[in-house]
Design a protein around this nucleic acid. Structure first.
Lengths: 150, 150
DNA sequence: TTATTATAGTTACAAATGAAACTTTTTTCA
DNA sequence: TGAAAAAAGTTTCATTTGTAACTATAATAA
């Protein structure tokens, strides 16, 4: 066990630092998959992936599902609409509420990006055996539940 | 096992997303520990922690040790110097090379922040048993080594 | 020696992000 | 009712961040 418990601070072994180091590398590589070829930002990609699973949701709903704040959601949707990848109308019942869907072009681009992204995830998971996979899953859930509980 | 292997993309189970979600929450909470009371940024804090372990290093060295790029390092050092927490001279042997040290005030502030930061890490680690701790350690090292190898 | 290349660090500009204020519409409740 | 509060989105402005260009010094090599 060489996590940094109860010792003087050593940055390289400090859990928050190690997590953010790993996460930043992964996020950057992932972002290249859609930013290089498709001119899509990370926020935009998260909205697309959310619309793929949940058509007809509102911006606020998309924000909840992605843990993005409403300004980031608004900007991502604007970007996607400008590019013609998402279609936005406002609900008849509640005219504050947006109703979002991918356009055909959005679907087309989504279906080209998704395999790249999934493949990248698989390449990460492939280095772990099934025991390690379930450990990772458990640890992420446990830590996330903990830091989220307040 | 409920990581997202070989399946259609489900954002909430997608490893890079889960990692960045957890990491962002932790980083934000951590940053409050020094930004609220001490008006120190995350970059500045990383430089202070590095100088605590490695006095007399240069900006470039600090950059290597923290995986920060040189512009971020330069700005953090400027901020720290402006606040009187770090002292910078240029080496006699190589006048491009900076020689950095905390001032007394820097040491004083560092020694007040470090316990807060360490305590926060311990509160995270405290929810894990010793087996989970070693699993976490192993997984972070393994994944980091993998994504770093190229 | 001196011309080229490399290194350390800074500066400048553009893009991304975050917080607060704002508009419009709906809900609440006195 | 209708006044106040809340909700959905957008806009604005200030800060942060990232990339590229720049200055100064040192190392390399023709």
């Amino acid at each position: 066990m060489s996590v940094n418990k109860n010792s003087k601070l050593v940055l390289e072994r400090f859990l928050p630092y190690r997590l953010s180091y790993l996460t930043n590398i992964i996020s950057r590589k992932l972002a290249r998959l859609y930013s290089d070829q498709f001119d899509i930002t990370t926020h935009e990609w998260k909205i697309l992936a959310t619309l793929n699973r949940h058509p007809n949701i509102s911006a606020a709903n998309a924000g909840e599902k992605t843990a993005m704040d409403k300004v980031a959601v608004s900007r991502a949707i604007k970007g996607l609409c400008d590019k013609g990848l998402v279609h936005k109308i406002f609900s008849k019942e509640d005219r504050r509420r947006s109703v979002l869907n991918m356009t055909e072009e959005g679907e087309a681009i989504y279906s080209r990006i998704e395999p790249l992204v999934t493949e990248y995830e698989n390449s990460l998971l492939a280095i772990l055996n099934s025991q390690e996979l379930s450990q990772l899953d458990h640890l992420l859930d446990k830590m996330t539940a903990h830091v989220t509980s307040d």
